Simulated assay, not measured.
Amino acid sequence: MSTESHADPVAPGSARDRLLDAAEALIYAGGIHATGVDAIVKQSGTARKSFYTHFGSKDALVAAALERRDERWMNWFIAGTERQGKRARKRLLGMFDVLREWFASADFHGCAFLNAAGETASADDPIRIVARDHKERLLAFVRTQCDAYAAESQMDARRAARLSRQWLILLDGAIAVALVSGEADAALDARATAEVLLDAECPGESRRSVSKSRGKHRHHGEPQPD
């Protein structure tokens, strides 16, 4: 099963890459404060001098590891979403199916960016800034899908912007519940809520979807509900 999970942290590569691999793997599994520089250096198979040469501080290493994860995670999520269908409604709802695959993986430990933000006190902390940038990037992608849905359903731009913010909360909420509960089906619960939200925003779109479904049934000679 393909997920956004990281490759083997001790895979061959430059000392910098190996330090990033080790930092990401250890911090994602155990947290920033619980992971020491010695553990990162040991898992990376590099010399401690390499750590100081490339990063200089643990916070700089963590921020760099998160920046790299952001790029990989977004590429994975965007590709997974785009495979869900041609219509924006299918792609929006399909985001939760993409998440469920991730939740069911053995190495799921929640959102690395929410986890990291929770361990930093200052809004100006470089690690918090990377986490905030990741959420802004995710929101921007969700907005493109909401804009496409607005075009399909004749929703105005203001409502599409509000929908995108609500969608981000549902995505992050599903991630948080899946982490705490250990239930991958948290994604399905969020998906059901998201569907209700879409139907409330554009009831006409929902009726059209039902009408198309009934039309297909008639085409195949299946009985229709009253």
Rank of each mutant, 00 (worst) to 15 (best):
D38G: 11
A104G: 00
H134Q: 02
R100G: 07
K58R: 12
G110C: 13
L114G: 04
N75E: 05
F113W: 11
F103I: 04
K42V: 00
V37I: 13
A106L: 12
F103C: 09
A79K: 10
K58Q: 11
W73D: 12
F96Q: 10
D8G: 00
F77W: 05
R91M: 09
T35E: 01
R100K: 15
G45Y: 03
R83Q: 08
A79M: 07
K135M: 14
C111G: 12
F108P: 08
K90M: 14
K86F: 09
W73T: 09
M95K: 03
Q43C: 05
Q43I: 10
I129Y: 02
D59P: 15
G118A: 10
R18T: 00
I40N: 13
G94N: 06
E67M: 09
D97W: 04
S122V: 06
T35F: 01
E136C: 08
V98L: 02
A64K: 14
V130N: 05
D21G: 08
L66I: 06
R91V: 05
D107F: 06
E101T: 14
A25W: 01
L19A: 05
R100C: 07
I32Y: 09
A123K: 15
A29W: 03
A47Y: 07
C111D: 15
R128W: 12
R87S: 04
L20W: 05
P9R: 01
S14K: 07
A7H: 12
K90D: 14
L93I: 12
W76C: 00
D147F: 04
G56N: 05
A25D: 13
H54Q: 03
A7P: 11
A88D: 01
E71L: 12
V62Q: 10
D21T: 01
M74S: 11
S5G: 08
A63S: 14
A104Q: 04
L19P: 04
S5Q: 09
A150S: 02
E119P: 05
T144P: 00
Y52I: 10
V41F: 04
Q84I: 01
S5N: 11
G56F: 01
A23Y: 04
N115A: 12
A39M: 08
A123V: 10
A150M: 04
R18W: 02
Y28L: 07
E119F: 07
D97L: 11
F141T: 14
L19G: 00
T46W: 07
I27E: 03
R100E: 12
E119V: 08
D97A: 13
V130H: 06
E24G: 09
E24D: 11
D59H: 14
G31Q: 03
R132Y: 15
A7L: 08
R137P: 14
F55G: 01
T144R: 10
A117S: 13
W73K: 11
R128F: 13
R132M: 15
A140H: 12
A65Q: 03
P126Q: 08
R18A: 04
G36R: 13
M95D: 02
L20T: 06
V142M: 08
R89W: 04
N115T: 14
L19N: 07
R89C: 06
L139T: 06
L99F: 08
L139D: 07
F96V: 07
D21N: 12
A121M: 13
R72I: 15
A11H: 00
L139G: 13
H54T: 02
